[in-house]
Design a protein around this nucleic acid. Structure first.
Length: 419
DNA sequence: TCTGGGGTCCTCCACCTG
DNA sequence: TCTGCAGGTGGAGGACCC
């Protein structure tokens, strides 16, 4: 059996842990730059705040219903997530941390155990240890645990937050209850196509032939179908090093100036280089992209990206800045209003599998220098050491007007109790 | 005025090579 | 030397996830 553990309204729950006055109150958490709503408490959902809602369009509703709005506080959420995951790891040695708020666990050899009881103990321990409420779905396959989890969450009173699909009858009933667009792995496009063919729920989807599913939804769809049928196709995935690393940002305003874009791109390249060194990888291809503002129909639109190969596999900030600038130069068009840019490094190889070029050599000074930069940044805070092409004067800051304190990771933000 | 960021996998197609 | 075919590869784009 597999289990899927999902934290309920995770970001909103994190905000509540250190501010219990928020219990029962509507909460919305915003994306970077306070742009869109990316998490809502049940109360906020009930008030009609949709996922992805632009914050400025819903300002009046926030005020009207006294919705507590927060900028996203990833220092807090990341720390709370690792606490939850470490508690879950006590229940099974086979755990796959699927996202910041979800984990799959494998329960092998538990056929004589009462999974309902185990689930309820997990819930109690996590809420006692972290304050975060969770829901748990047990089933013979990963896709079915997603369905079971949804039922556990939807009918918390009846299920105690734990639901087990362990019979054919329960499987069929659960799949008939699950709307096609709610199936894990069926996105908006496929859901629309399936609905048009009168395939409205997960059960109807499993009744289609393998060939049909393979043809219309590729092997991914076919694997999903088998998993929903109760034939384990998807297994726990072991954590791999990343295959690509990206740093991309929307700007608070719009940028027309080439020098300002150069500075932003250099900063993104430095960030990618740091992430590369963190996982001991090198890249040999750097992609830079530029976007104008798609919402401004009155302005000319432009989207372009380019990939440039580096001379050698590298994770040096200097090399990546140089390559990213070369890429930017080739796609920059004067007179446009840019809203977003990003740097993505690809073709990552581990340290011990670097393939060198016959005709060019890496600068031997870079590696020790980068190690010192990383050490200084680790000791004195990120971005204390900057590179020449990054701005020393201007501080690019994300709009985060409603940021809560980093209660659990920053000594100055630690909670104070008056006695 | 204000609309996120970071990933993965698969398919299709053009191109190259034997 | 030319042509046709088959298989491999890499880039672009689409679909999905959180």
């Amino acid at each position: 059996m597999f289990a899927l553990v999902d934290c309920n309204n995770f970001y909103a729950s994190c905000e509540r842990v250190f501010n219990p006055a928020l219990n029962g109150k509507p909460i919305a958490v915003l994306s970077n730059n306070d742009g869109c709503v990316i998490a809502r408490s049940n109360e906020a959902k009930a008030l009609g705040i949709p996922m992805g809602a632009p914050a400025f369009e819903y300002k009046h509703l926030f005020l009207k219903h006294n919705i507590h709005v927060f900028s996203s506080n990833y220092a807090l959420y990341g720390d709370m997530s690792s606490r939850v995951m470490s508690l879950l790891a006590n229940f099974s040695p086979d755990i796959e941390i699927y996202s910041i708020d979800e984990a799959f666990l494998k329960f092998e050899g538990f056929q004589y155990f009462n999974l309902q009881e185990i689930g309820e103990i997990m819930r109690k321990q996590v809420i006692r240890g972290t304050g975060i409420p969770i829901s748990i779905g047990f089933a013979p396959t990963k896709a079915l645990t997603k369905v079971a989890n949804k039922i556990a969450k939807k009918f918390t009173e009846r299920t105690q937050g734990v639901y087990i699909i362990d019979t054919e009858e329960k499987r069929v009933k659960a799949l008939k209850w699950t709307a096609i667009e709610d199936v894990w792995g069926v996105g908006r496009k496929h859901a629309k196509r399936l609905r048009a063919l009168n395939i409205n729920n997960a059960y109807q989807f499993t009744l289609q032939s393998d060939d049909w599913v393979r043809k219309h939804m590729s092997v991914i769809g076919l694997r999903l179908k088998h998993d929903l049928e109760g034939k384990p196709t998807l297994n726990l995935e072991t954590p791999n090093t990343k295959k690509s690393i990206a740093t991309t940002r929307s700007f608070e305003g719009m940028i027309t100036d080439y020098a300002a874009l150069q500075e932003r791109v250099a900063t993104f390249a430095v960030s990618c280089a740091e992430k590369l060194r963190h996982q001991n990888s090198h890249t040999n291809a750097v992609m830079v992209f530029l976007h104008t503002n798609g919402f401004r129909k009155d302005l000319p639109q432009y989207y372009r990206n380019v990939v440039i190969k580096t001379e050698n596999p590298t994770n040096s900030s200097f090399d990546l800045i140089k390559t990213a600038h070369k890429a930017l130069e080739s796609i920059y068009k004067k007179g446009l209003h840019y809203k977003k840019a990003g740097v993505i490094v690809m073709n990552l190889t581990p340290e011990d599998q670097k393939q060198f070029s016959l005709f060019s050599h890496e600068n031997p000074k870079h590696q020790p220098l980068m190690a010192i930069v990383d050490r200084l940044n680790a000791s004195y805070g990120n971005n204390k050491v900057k590179f020449g092409s990054q701005s020393l004067g201007r501080q690019w800051k994300m709009k985060q007007e409603r940021l809560s304190p980093r209660y659990s990771t920053h000594i100055n933000d630690i909670i104070r109790v008056k006695v």
